[in-house]
Computed example of a mutant assay.
Amino acid sequence: MNRTAGAHPSVLVSVDTVVFTLRDGALQLLLLRRAQQPFQGVWALPGGYVHADEDADAKASALRVLKDKLGNSGAYLEQLATFSGPARDPRGWSVAIAYCALLPWEQVPQRADVQLLPVEALGTLPFDHRAIVDVALARVRNKSQYSSLPVHLCGPHFTLPQLQQVYEYLLGEPLNKVSFRRKMDEMALLEPVPGALHSGGAHRPAQLYRVRAPYKQELALSVRGL
């Protein structure tokens, strides 16, 4: 283990981001092919070291990682947990501050070093990334029961049936239409897009909605679960 001039052991400090998106009706995990050792060429979570000279805090580090590695600066982001110990990284004793990010499919970069995998088909991952993903998955599914979290997987405009479908994908069960819309009203999350309608083929055009400004990076909560 490396030591500083004061003989204290140095600790590696990084951030890892679990990025989820929805594609083909399934929750998918975004992975990046590692460009360097350890685990060079292996698919892993987007992550990087904390830059003490430029990052105001750990969240700023995670936002920088998403911008540098995915070209995205607008994803919903929340802190998950801290993972640490001597065995999680072959380079030495390390601390990783993990974050969960939700990204609409349209914002996922289409590159050879980016891969999407359905969460139900995940195998082993390097470091302790599988344990981090498991924590993130439990968080997303739990908070989908009582908060506006799933809306951050939608694009800027969507119909209420489209939003309900996103909730159903995450919860794994159908929802009552009337109850769902009552919950959306309770949370005061949405506002109609003036003059914007979605043509649904055989169905009559449906009103398009967007997230109200206070909740673009925050969550609205429901008193009761869905």
Rank of each mutant, 00 (worst) to 15 (best):
L31H: 01
L125G: 00
L122V: 06
D113N: 13
Q207R: 09
V193S: 11
V223A: 15
L175G: 06
Y167R: 04
R23I: 01
V178N: 10
T4M: 08
D55G: 04
A98R: 07
V119W: 02
L197I: 02
D89V: 06
L190F: 12
P126E: 00
K67S: 11
V108R: 02
I132A: 10
S148H: 08
R182I: 05
A220I: 10
L189A: 07
L30W: 03
E186S: 10
R139I: 00
R181L: 06
N72H: 09
W93G: 15
F39Q: 10
L149Q: 02
G92H: 04
K183Q: 09
A52S: 08
G172M: 07
V133Q: 00
R139Q: 12
Q79E: 15
A75Y: 11
K143H: 13
A131N: 11
A26Q: 15
T21E: 00
H152Y: 07
L171D: 04
L70I: 03
V193T: 14
S84H: 15
L117M: 13
L30T: 06
A26G: 06
K67Y: 11
S84Y: 13
P90G: 02
A60E: 09
N142R: 12
Y146R: 07
A112S: 13
K183D: 07
L160K: 13
Y209M: 12
N2A: 11
T159P: 05
T17P: 00
L171C: 08
S222N: 10
S144K: 02
L137I: 01
S148E: 01
P192E: 05
V178T: 14
T124L: 12
R181P: 04
